[in-house]
Design a binder for these strands. Structure first.
Lengths: 256, 256
DNA sequence: AAAATAGTGTCTCTCAGACATTATGCT
DNA sequence: AGCATAATGTCTGAGAGACACTATTTT
């Protein structure tokens, strides 16, 4: 066995090892507020990000993403789940890994590699938490505001990267479901997509999404126990047909 | 400041820190062999993966992915680039990060979190290397064979995950270019896609890819300095039009 | 009636899918 | 002539895009 530079004979004693491997989580939610109009109307929706105010060095007093150090007894995903629960009081949500942040010097505490996740949380899951927490140190920020802030560490990069990934996935997968109730109207779905991807615009959205031939059954009509279509007039005078996502997830291709 | 479990007052002395943070790289290439026919014909293409035979504990004698430990002075991506160069002799290729592997106990040497990349390498870039390397310990394996092998660590999982990711990206992005020369024929492109994604089948492939209306200009005709279309009879009696990828990368959506 | 959202009719043009047919140059 | 690959012709029906129009219920 040789001692060449790419030797496999690694042993922790011979090299500097990392000082920690945390996970950080970009928690997105969509808040909805009733419009001020006296009549029924679609709510105003806004994409929000959860941030935590740091109480200790480094970046004391700055806002940053929730997160924390991984333990040797858990996987990185389990670590992120734990932090999600401990810091945001949230369980059972869609969470995905998206990148590692490892630039030397990114953390003044030492050589620390951060593993970034994003989570998509339904508004209702955060409402409980907001009651029993000191709102001054854990808060939702509107996306635009959060993007303009100077966050601790390289969390600004993480936020931008997470957002780009979520926007892409919003259009190519059915993650919109994470922000919707089981049964929803086409307008709600359209609104959610537009809230995450402001450039999204489809004048004939209803036609496309419900023409079951080409995009085969991403969603289906909700029906009651007797098979009659269910509708809702939550947001409108005229009741709208309710839909639900199916299990089907289409495969996309640029070649055909 | 409190000592509660999710305190920010982390300091390396108080907790166990990782014993290492390596990167491992799944290097894909497509080999092409001339057919045995006397006449001109399309070559036989095969997706291959580069593996290295381990010489030391753990998994001594087993085949595994190339990789190695990250240094505190480099980012994880730089680490992967270095390993790619040191272990496979490859530079300037498409490489992407795709996951972290962190299951407790995954590495008998300790608490080691591995960061997995895939690289797409043109056959030509590996040919040089194969000459000056002992072919007995660094080798290309046909994909199917590699999948059936028992690799060291959790590298079997990495290989399967990398393959799934590359297959998805082959259909949704223009990474096919990584396996093709600057200018190529439609048949070559079709073959490359099928080599990576065996289920891909498009009877009217030429029509679709060259109808510049809908999939606007993913590729364009190659032309000589006088603007005349260039063609090649590398693989056929009848010369075929050459194409090149443009910079355009289409955005896909399930909603319209 | 006015407002607000839900949903349909209709037209044009492109394109997908299928399959047959022609084109070119080598052996 | 026979072959392998390259490329076009032609038909059908689905669907995208645009825009006007109708439907339903509340205020």
């Amino acid at each position: 066995m040789s001692n060449e530079e790419h030797s496999d004979a690694y042993s922790p004693e011979n090299f500097r090892t990392p000082d920690g491997a945390p996970s950080d989580i970009v928690i997105f939610t969509i808040t909805s507020r009733e419009k001020a109009t006296p009549k029924k109307a679609l709510p105003t929706r806004e994409l929000q990000v959860l941030l935590i105010k740091r109480k200790v060095w480094p970046y004391e007093g700055k806002w940053a993403l929730p997160g924390g150090f991984c333990k040797e007894t858990e996987s990185m995903y389990e670590c992120a789940l734990r932090e999600l629960r401990e810091e945001a009081g949230v369980t059972d949500v869609h969470m995905e890994y998206f990148n590692v942040y490892s630039k030397p010097g990114r953390d003044p505490r030492g050589w620390i590699l951060s593993h970034a996740y994003f989570a998509l949380v339904h508004e209702h899951k955060l409402i409980n938490r907001r009651a029993d927490t000191d709102a001054s140190d854990v808060r939702l920020f509107p996306l635009e505001e959060a993007l303009a802030m100077e966050l601790g560490f390289d969390h600004g990069d993480m936020l931008r990267d997470a957002l780009a990934r979520v926007r892409e996935k919003m259009l190519t997968t059915t993650i919109a479901r994470e922000f919707l109730p089981e049964e929803f109207t086409i307008s709600e779905l359209y609104q959610v997509i537009q809230t995450v991807v402001p450039t999204f615009e489809e004048p004939n959205f209803i036609r496309k999404i419900t023409s079951t031939q080409s995009r085969q059954g991403i969603i289906e009509e909700a029906r009651d126990s007797e098979g009659r279509p269910k509708s809702s007039n939550r947001y409108s005078q005229r009741a709208a047909q309710l839909y639900r996502f199916t299990e089907y997830s289409p495969g996309l291709s640029i070649y055909g």
